[in-house]
Design a protein around this nucleic acid. Structure first.
Lengths: 194, 194
DNA sequence: GCGTAACCCTACGCACGAGTAGGTATGCTC
DNA sequence: GAGCATACCTACTCGTGCGTAGGGTTACGC
């Protein structure tokens, strides 16, 4: 039932999607949709939650905490891109939708915040293991950038049906790990004075 | 006049924004808006174009082609974050809007494609200078990731009114340049076999 | 066979907002 | 000052789509 909603929301976008179309696609009538899932907004939130939970679960299941940092990152990325690859139109458009529409931006921000936190935790852990320490804001910002880069590649993947999720994950891992590796070793770039 | 439209679109989002509110905010009446700028859709596209052009101009003006690659990247990033910092609510929400709404996604995709192309060109140039060569898709994907990371930090910046654009640019530069620097030297990360 | 209850449908009310028609003031020509 | 054009406004039409009211249908109890 939610499947139909996700499908229509994906294809049309939140506003352009009509409850009539969702009902038709689900093979039932509109009052049933209202009876089971409430208003259009609640319905969208329900879709968002389910897809989000599935994604989080896929990632969490892959990135077990006892692994090394790069192994966790790699498995997490692979799970993420695998998920996106398997739910291309569904996830990507749902996600793009939620970004823009203000009632839902909060929901999504929470999801992303959890991801950022996890990534920041991994970086912090790895940094401490090397005896280095970095300010909390710096950590958050780097994690944010990595998550953003990953989301961006997810969009790219969703737009290129022939692309391989596994290979995309490898590419992302390259960028992330090489950059992060430099940070671990204490390398920094400084703006030219003047 | 466009200023009012940008402001309202930013605050409300494309759909929630009413032409009445835009007209009121601009201090004129609705038929005038239609007379000067056409339909709501055309109005939004006009906003998008103007803001986009301003941004592109700010970046292009800063990143002169005769500079070294890292200098160009640094100046481009600084200009970009400076622009976002100066147009926080305007740009960010306009941008977030355009991503989601299907009629406008194309416009934005074009803008981003130009950015990706520029970044990819810079990477390619720097790589060739080091005697290395990388497949076109690899180049595009890395550029895409960098642009995505940058956009993501722009969002972060827009959501943190006290954050400093200059400092954010430095952070982004660190991630980008250190990661890219590794790639330049031919370092790669490989998935564990098995 | 008749009451009734669960279930689902068609067909509507209603609000909202894009786009427009037709009227009014201000300035310009002769 | 009459005619006319320009610039602008108020007040409307009309489509669209969310949410619901009220009617049919099937199954069961008596």
């Amino acid at each position: 039932m939610l499947d139909a909603a996700v499908k229509v929301f994906s294809r049309r976008g939140f506003h352009a999607a009509s409850m009539d179309e969702i009902a038709e696609d689900a093979g039932i009538s509109k009052p049933m949709v209202y009876a089971y899932l409430g208003t259009k907004e609640e319905l969208f939130v329900a879709c968002l939650h389910r897809e989000g939970a599935r994604m989080m679960q896929a990632i969490a299941g892959a990135a077990a905490p006892e692994l090394s940092a790069d192994e966790r990152l790699w498995r997490g990325l692979r799970a993420f891109f695998g998920f996106v690859g398997a739910h291309r139109d569904g996830w990507a458009v749902l996600y793009r939708q939620a970004r823009g529409e203000q009632p839902f931006a909060g929901e999504l921000a929470g999801m992303r915040a959890r991801l950022v936190e996890v990534v920041a935790g991994m970086l912090d852990h790895a940094l401490r293991a090397e005896g280095r320490e970095v300010g909390e804001t710096d950590l958050e910002v780097v994690a944010y950038a990595l998550v953003g880069a990953t989301e961006s590649l997810a969009d790219w993947l969703a737009d290129h049906p022939d692309a391989d999720p596994e290979k995309t994950a490898t590419r992302m891992m390259n960028v992330a790990w090489l950059g992060a590796g430099q940070l671990l070793r204490g390398a920094t770039w400084r703006p030219p004075t003047g």
